[in-house]
Nucleic acid binder design. Structure first.
Lengths: 243, 243
DNA sequence: CGTCGGGTTGATAACTTTCAAATTTCGTGG
DNA sequence: CCACGAAATTTGAAAGTTATCAACCCGACG
């Protein structure tokens, strides 16, 4: 059973204590492995009959394109995250998802999902929890964009990304590997690339953080937390609610 | 069986064809009716042991308060919507929810939820769908704030609210009753109240819409749709995915 | 070696907020 | 029915933040 401790299993297990049967059902999700090259779309806005994916390795970003030519990145997916679940539930996709790096995924068909939910009901509850956690992150992101200036916004965003990565063992208090370009960061934060550049410079010059060549380095973690009013509570979890 | 066609039943039924047993399980959610006065918090940020609610009548807004004293309204709940579900799933609430009008709700305890999900698994899937729909709305809102200017943003927001209300029979193409103050609108759109006022004036002077004394009137629906690039696809649904 | 996609910088323009002061609306009690 | 006070809306002027435009730099790569 090679995937008993996949990132997904670990994540769902945090909410619902999974039985052997449920773990076996999760196995089904890991049947069809695929990989995608950087820049390829896994999910496309407006398209019918989409598949869902579980990200095993690499980074993906979910975004929307606007008629005025701009785009807004809504979220990033890191290993253990679902991708395109809404596209399956709604039959048609309301967003795009693009591989930012080379990406390894397990492909999940609508049928796999429906079967799994029917045969192992607690999985549906576990996935409900995972989706709610995603929603909480999107909400946090929305508040960040709506009510913080560029400096706080950027600092908070990079801190939160770090917290998420630490949960799956991909980051520390010192920093993390981050394949975002300044353009992507701008599209995620609702700012222009030029302005992001200036903000990053300011953060660097104030000795708070360095964003360079694919690395985020927290030069002054405490200072950043203070600047950004950072609070990780919503990412924490006290152990399974369903036993 | 008084609640067989409650707003919630109608909403969930659009996604999952509900059996008699499942309808009966939903009945349990409607046991404890309560009402709240305008201005009262139903859910409070940071609080443990919250309850969830199903909104039967009135308006609620979900928001977050920031340490800098501002607030960001994330979403509005209208009849048929869940409220505080995340607070139950995460044991602690990451947001506030305030009654904007006098409000009628059914109170749902964590146990009600857990029991219902265990005994009638398809309900868990139906709720998963409802949560995903909420997430889609938050995503739309995020994109709106991140990448549209104040005029388009306001127009789109009021159009989308109208579309939601039409789904539950509370609005038409002509307009709808809307208990938002300009302050609330500002907090929802990430703008200042003063600026919202100017934007509303411009929309009015251009003959697009009138926002006044609790009513939104679409003076030129087509013009608004054009200005805001409005597209309702994500709110549509082709009938139950689960039969 | 030339090009191309990031990244960096300065100058200017556009948009939005803030502050301060009316003005209007609305509920309440007289 | 009117007067009053509180809250919401409206407006102007000034300040602040962020976008846009236009260069320029630099390293990767064919």
């Amino acid at each position: 059973m090679p995937h008993l401790d996949s990132p997904l299993t670990r994540k769902l297990g945090a909410y619902v204590a999974l039985s052997g049967k449920e773990l076996a059902a999760l196995e089904v999700f890991h049947q069809r492995r695929r990989s995608f090259e950087p820049g390829v779309d896994l999910v496309r806005q407006g398209q019918l009959g989409q598949l869902a994916y579980i990200l095993a390795d690499g980074w993906v970003c979910s975004y929307k394109l606007l008629p005025n030519g701009t785009r807004q990145i809504v979220d990033f997916q890191v290993p253990g995250d679902f991708l395109g679940l809404r596209s399956v539930l709604f039959r048609t996709s309301d967003h795009n998802a693009e591989a930012m790096t080379r990406v390894e995924v397990s492909e999940v068909s609508p049928n796999d999902l429906i079967e799994a939910f029917a045969n192992t009901p607690r999985l549906a509850t576990a996935v409900l929890w995972a989706v709610s956690r995603d929603e909480a992150m999107v909400v946090e992101h929305l508040v960040d964009i709506g009510r913080r200036n560029a400096l706080e916004r950027t600092a908070l965003f990079l801190l939160e990304l770090g917290a998420r990565l630490k949960l799956v063992g991909l980051g520390t208090k010192q920093g993390y590997a981050c394949p975002l370009s300044q353009y992507m960061l701008a599209d995620a934060l609702g700012l222009s690339a030029v302005h992001i550049n200036r903000v990053l410079r300011q953060l660097r010059e104030e000795g708070l953080l360095t964003f360079r060549s694919g690395q985020v380095i927290f030069d002054d973690f405490e200072g950043l937390v203070e600047l950004a009013d950072f609070d990780t509570a919503y990412l924490d979890q006290d152990g399974p609610l369903l036993r």
